[in-house]
Amino acid sequence: NKFNKEMRNAYWEILLLPNLNEQQKRAFIRSLYDDPSQSANLLAEAKKLNDAQA
């Protein structure tokens, strides 16, 4: 399933972002589970926040 693969990839990438705190990571991951079809958008948002907090 395409969404499962995308979601899994986004999950691990979000977990490994160094500048997000645990609460932020949990919020993004919760959103991933709520709507896996938004994986790419959520990952992009997480990366943007990660860069902003660098």
Rank of each mutant, 00 (worst) to 15 (best):
3 F>K: 11
5 K>R: 03
31 S>Q: 09
3 F>A: 06
29 I>P: 00
48 K>Y: 10
5 K>T: 01
28 F>R: 01
49 L>A: 14
35 D>H: 08
18 P>L: 08
48 K>V: 12
39 S>V: 13
34 D>Q: 13
43 L>H: 03
7 M>Q: 12
21 N>P: 05
1 N>H: 04
23 Q>P: 10
47 K>A: 05
39 S>E: 01
44 A>N: 12
8 R>A: 10
24 Q>H: 06
1 N>I: 05
9 N>G: 05
16 L>H: 15
49 L>G: 02
8 R>I: 09
45 E>S: 12
41 N>E: 05
34 D>H: 13
13 E>Y: 15
36 P>I: 03
25 K>N: 01
3 F>M: 10
35 D>S: 12
28 F>P: 00
5 K>W: 03
16 L>M: 12
40 A>K: 12
8 R>F: 12
33 Y>V: 05
3 F>T: 11
40 A>D: 05
27 A>N: 11
38 Q>H: 09
18 P>W: 05
10 A>M: 03
53 Q>Y: 11
11 Y>N: 01
35 D>R: 14
32 L>Q: 01
26 R>F: 10
1 N>A: 02
46 A>K: 00
1 N>E: 07
27 A>I: 08
53 Q>N: 08
18 P>H: 09
5 K>S: 01
37 S>Q: 11
29 I>S: 03
16 L>T: 11
40 A>T: 05
9 N>Q: 15
23 Q>S: 10
27 A>W: 13
9 N>S: 12
2 K>S: 14
21 N>A: 11
14 I>T: 02
30 R>M: 04
52 A>L: 08
52 A>Y: 13
41 N>L: 13
13 E>G: 15
10 A>H: 03
1 N>W: 00
19 N>A: 06
13 E>N: 15
31 S>D: 06
47 K>F: 13
45 E>K: 14
20 L>H: 00
12 W>G: 05
20 L>F: 02
11 Y>W: 06
33 Y>S: 02
34 D>M: 14
20 L>S: 00
6 E>I: 05
3 F>Y: 08
23 Q>F: 12
53 Q>S: 09
44 A>W: 14
6 E>W: 01
46 A>L: 02
38 Q>V: 05
54 A>T: 11
1 N>Y: 00
21 N>W: 15
13 E>I: 15
54 A>Y: 11
4 N>S: 04
16 L>V: 06
19 N>G: 10
22 E>A: 12
54 A>N: 11
13 E>L: 15
32 L>P: 00
32 L>A: 01
48 K>S: 09
16 L>S: 11
14 I>L: 07
54 A>P: 08
26 R>K: 04
18 P>S: 08
28 F>N: 00
30 R>E: 02
36 P>L: 03
35 D>N: 12
20 L>I: 08
10 A>G: 02
24 Q>V: 09
17 L>D: 01
11 Y>M: 13
24 Q>F: 07
52 A>H: 11
1 N>V: 04
36 P>M: 04
4 N>H: 12
30 R>H: 04
31 S>R: 14
31 S>N: 09
24 Q>G: 02
36 P>S: 06
38 Q>A: 10
32 L>V: 05
18 P>M: 08
3 F>G: 08
2 K>L: 07
41 N>S: 10
37 S>M: 12
47 K>W: 09
47 K>S: 05
35 D>A: 10
15 L>V: 12
24 Q>S: 06
42 L>G: 02
14 I>K: 00
45 E>Q: 13
47 K>R: 11
14 I>D: 00
7 M>L: 12
31 S>A: 06
46 A>G: 03
54 A>M: 11
28 F>E: 00
45 E>A: 13
37 S>R: 11
6 E>S: 02
26 R>N: 03
30 R>F: 10
27 A>Y: 14
19 N>W: 14
17 L>H: 12
16 L>G: 14
8 R>H: 05
48 K>P: 00
39 S>H: 15
50 N>L: 01
29 I>A: 05
35 D>F: 11
21 N>H: 10
42 L>N: 04
42 L>M: 08
9 N>F: 14
51 D>A: 10
45 E>W: 15
50 N>T: 02
23 Q>R: 08
13 E>S: 15
48 K>N: 12
54 A>K: 03
44 A>K: 11
5 K>Q: 07
17 L>P: 00
32 L>S: 01
33 Y>D: 01
52 A>K: 11
37 S>L: 08
34 D>T: 08
26 R>V: 06
22 E>Q: 12
23 Q>N: 07
38 Q>L: 11
45 E>V: 13
7 M>T: 07
32 L>F: 02
49 L>H: 09
22 E>P: 13
15 L>D: 01
17 L>Y: 06
15 L>N: 07
11 Y>F: 08
36 P>A: 07
2 K>A: 11
17 L>F: 08
29 I>H: 05
21 N>L: 08
45 E>Y: 15
35 D>P: 01
28 F>G: 00
35 D>I: 13
48 K>G: 08
43 L>D: 00
9 N>R: 15
38 Q>N: 07
20 L>G: 00
46 A>E: 00
31 S>L: 08
41 N>V: 09
4 N>L: 11
42 L>Y: 10
6 E>T: 04
22 E>H: 12
4 N>G: 09
39 S>A: 06
53 Q>D: 09
28 F>V: 02
15 L>A: 04
8 R>T: 06
9 N>H: 14
6 E>V: 02
17 L>V: 01
6 E>D: 05
8 R>Y: 11
33 Y>P: 01
17 L>K: 04
27 A>K: 09
52 A>E: 08
42 L>S: 04
29 I>R: 04
24 Q>I: 07
54 A>F: 11
40 A>Q: 09
39 S>Q: 04
6 E>N: 04
5 K>G: 03
37 S>Y: 10
39 S>L: 13
23 Q>K: 10
22 E>Y: 14
11 Y>K: 12
2 K>I: 14
16 L>Q: 13
13 E>Q: 15
13 E>K: 15
28 F>K: 02
42 L>K: 08
25 K>E: 01
38 Q>G: 07
22 E>T: 13
53 Q>E: 10
17 L>T: 03
11 Y>P: 01
25 K>L: 05
12 W>Y: 09
38 Q>T: 07
7 M>P: 01
14 I>F: 03
22 E>S: 10
47 K>E: 03
49 L>S: 06
39 S>I: 06
17 L>G: 01
17 L>M: 08
33 Y>A: 02
51 D>M: 15
23 Q>E: 09
38 Q>K: 13
31 S>I: 06
14 I>V: 06
37 S>I: 06
20 L>R: 00
46 A>N: 00
42 L>T: 13
29 I>F: 14
48 K>Q: 12
14 I>H: 00
36 P>K: 05
18 P>A: 08
33 Y>E: 02
8 R>Q: 14
16 L>D: 05
5 K>A: 03
24 Q>N: 07
15 L>K: 14
30 R>V: 04
48 K>T: 10
49 L>M: 10
22 E>R: 09
51 D>K: 09
51 D>I: 12
33 Y>K: 03
12 W>R: 14
35 D>W: 09
51 D>G: 14
15 L>G: 03
14 I>S: 00
51 D>P: 02
35 D>M: 14
36 P>H: 05
37 S>G: 04
50 N>Y: 02
31 S>E: 07
23 Q>Y: 14
45 E>D: 11
5 K>Y: 03
40 A>P: 09
18 P>R: 15
26 R>T: 04
33 Y>F: 13
